[in-house]
């Protein structure tokens, strides 16, 4: 485990713990909050004797923003479900904070509850509407508190889902590809919102995504999962807000794409700056027997 230096912004409300504490025996109990938000060791999850998680080891510091990348089917969503407590047919040690919250890829709002009732759903006691409104204000959705979920746009529904997670005041926020279903413009807004919420709240975040750029824009540390293990990790020691034009950022992106087995090609519609790291990346292959225009 690479002990990444503290990349927490100084305005964080929570003190950054020294990383060394994470490995100290006294911090083993995550519920004590002694600098560790997640501790996973030797985690195994099998589906019909197929090992989806095969001895995962993962530590997340309190307040750290970690992105988990991986190709589809690599087990990253399964890991998130284990951390959220939804999947408990596991072997190995998993320590997570008691207060944790999940935002899923689909907003999963109860269609029969108005937005504010969705937000306070599951809170202990009889929560006041004000509690929901406060969380909705945080995501800029307080004006839709009385709306039915069916009347929300995709971005609004996702923000409501985020408010529902935030109202629980989590020490660990689990985001399962929360921007995957959003259009490009809404996604940018939503990513900024998450960055802002994290900066103000200072909770640990685990963002599961398949978007390398998203991971590099938001996270302190990027993990790459493959074959049921964390195969690679990179600390992103770039100042925030991150600049996609920064050559260091571009280099990290190329490196991670390589790790994910995707060679960077030119002319991709989503490429901002294309540093040609891979020698052959700029060459379009036109094998014989196939038309040059296809």
């Amino acid at each position: 485990m690479t002990p990444g230096t503290s990349t927490r912004p100084p305005e964080s409300s929570r003190p950054s713990e020294p990383v060394a504490a994470a490995t100290a025996a006294g911090a083993a109990d995550a519920q004590e909050g002694g600098g560790v938000a997640v501790r996973v060791d030797g985690l195994v999850r099998e589906f019909d004797r197929r090992r989806v998680l095969d001895g995962v080891r993962l530590d997340i510091r309190a307040g750290e923003f970690v992105a988990l990348l991986g190709r589809s089917g690599c087990g990253k969503s399964t890991l998130l479900r284990v951390l959220s407590g939804l999947d408990r047919e596991i072997e190995g040690e998993v320590l997570v904070p008691r207060r944790r919250a999940v935002a899923f890829q689909a907003p999963r709002l109860m269609p029969w509850k108005r937005v504010w009732r969705n937000v306070v759903l599951g809170l202990p006691g009889r929560p006041e509407r004000v509690v929901a409104e406060r969380a909705l204000t945080e995501v800029g959705l307080d004006h839709r508190a009385d709306a039915w979920p069916k009347t929300l746009s995709g971005g609004e529904a996702q923000r409501a889902s985020l408010a529902r997670a935030l109202v629980r005041d989590p020490d660990l926020l689990l985001l399962d590809e929360p921007f995957g279903a959003l259009d490009a413009l809404t996604r940018i807004t939503a990513q900024r919102l998450v960055a802002e919420v994290w900066r103000e709240r200072g909770c640990a975040v685990l963002l599961v995504t398949h978007d390398v750029e998203e991971a590099l824009l938001l996270a302190d540390r990027v993990l790459v999962m493959a074959d049921g293990r964390i195969a690679h990790e990179t600390a992103v020691e770039l100042p925030r807000p991150r600049d996609v034009g920064d050559p260091r950022w571009t280099a990290l992106r190329a490196q991670l794409l390589g790790r994910l087995g995707v060679a960077e090609a030119d002319g991709g519609a989503d490429s901002h700056v294309d540093g040609d790291v891979d020698g052959g990346a700029g060459v379009r292959r036109t094998p014989d027997g196939r038309g040059a225009d296809r």
Binding site: G85, L86, A101, V102, R108, L121, G122, L123, R164, R168
Partner: peptide, 18 residues
Amino acid sequence: LVEAGTSLGLGRWGLIRH
């Protein structure tokens, strides 16, 4: 939705009701 309810901390009766 049932899973979402579980992740929000609803118990058995809460899941049934909400």
